[in-house]
C-alpha cells in the first residue's frame, strides 16, 4: 500500500481534506479494497469515540463567564488608555498638566539645573584666563628658546631679595625649583651673559650658569 494514500485516509474519514486531495483519495479507494477497509475502520472508530463522550450543554457556564466579563472592562476599552500611558509624549503631557504644586516643583528643579549648567559652561571657557594661569605651575608655561640662566640661591635668602634681584636684571623664572634648588631664568632682552654676571655677584646667590636649553621636566 502507498504510504501517501495511507497518510491521507484519516483525514478522508473525518472529511477535512481539501476537494482536490479528497477526489484523489476517492479515486484510490475505488481500485484498492485495502484502503476502503482502512477508511471503514476509521469511520467505525469515529462513531465509537463519539458515542461515549459526555459533553455539557453549549450554554453551560456561559452566565458565569458573562457575569465575570461585567466585572472588568474589555481590552477594547482599556487598550487605548494603556497605549497612551505607554507613550512618552503622553507621560510628559500628564506630568505637565496644570497642577500648581507640581509646576512649582518642576520650575524650581529646572532653574537649578539651568544655573548649574551655566556655571559649568562659564568655568569651562575660562581656562586660558590670566587669573587661572597664576595658579598653574610655572613649569607648564612654554618658554621661548634659550639661552637660560640656571641659578641656585643660598639657604636663607629672603624672597624679597630674590624678587629684587630678578627685577633688577629683567629676568623671570621659567622653571624650577629642581630637587637641588635650581631655578631657571629667562631674559626677554637676550642680555643673558650680562644678567648672569650681575646675578653671580649677588650675595644671596650660590651658583650661576648659562645653559642653552631647559632640562627635561623630570629633573626639575
Amino acid at each position: 500500500m502507498d504510504d501517501k494514500v495511507m497518510d491521507q485516509l484519516p483525514w478522508y474519514a473525518n472529511n477535512t481534506l481539501d476537494d482536490e486531495t479528497r477526489q484523489w483519495v476517492a479515486s484510490q479507494l475505488d481500485s484498492h479494497p485495502a484502503y476502503r477497509a482502512q477508511v471503514s475502520f476509521y469511520e467505525r472508530l469515529r462513531a465509537g469515540l463519539r458515542a461515549g463522550v459526555w459533553t455539557p450543554e453549549p450554554t453551560a457556564g456561559l452566565d458565569a463567564v458573562l457575569a465575570r466579563l461585567d466585572s472588568r472592562p474589555h481590552t477594547a476599552q482599556i487598550e487605548p488608555e494603556r497605549r497612551e500611558q505607554a507613550s512618552v509624549i503622553a507621560f510628559l503631557r500628564r506630568a505637565l498638566a496644570w497642577k500648581p504644586l507640581p509646576r512649582l516643583a518642576y520650575g524650581i528643579g529646572l532653574s537649578v539645573i539651568l544655573i548649574q549648567a551655566g556655571m559649568i559652561g562659564l568655568l569651562a571657557t575660562r581656562g586660558n584666563d590670566a587669573v587661572f594661569s597664576e595658579v598653574r605651575s610655572r613649569a607648564q608655561v612654554a618658554a621661548a628658546a634659550g639661552p637660560f640662566i640656571k641659578v641656585s640661591f643660598r639657604p636663607g635668602a629672603a624672597e624679597a631679595d630674590v624678587r629684587f634681584l630678578l627685577v633688577s636684571v629683567g629676568a623671570s623664572i621659567v622653571g624650577g625649583p629642581s630637587q637641588l634648588g635650581d631655578y631657571y631664568l629667562y631674559l626677554e632682552s637676550k642680555r643673558t651673559d650680562w644678567a648672569a654676571q650681575q646675578i653671580r655677584i649677588s650675595p644671596i646667590v650660590e651658583s650661576v650658569a648659562v645653559i642653552a636649553t631647559l632640562p627635561p621636566a623630570k629633573e626639575e
Partner: peptide
C-alpha cells in the same frame, strides 16, 4: 472513551448503524 456516569446518556447523536453495535461489545 466512556466518560459517562451511571444513568447518564450521551449527548452525541447517533451517526450510523455501526454506532449501535459499538454500544455493546465494541464499545
Amino acid at each position: 472513551v466512556d466518560d459517562l456516569e451511571p444513568g447518564e446518556e450521551p449527548v452525541a447523536e447517533v451517526d450510523s448503524p455501526d454506532t449501535l453495535l459499538l454500544k455493546s461489545q465494541e464499545k
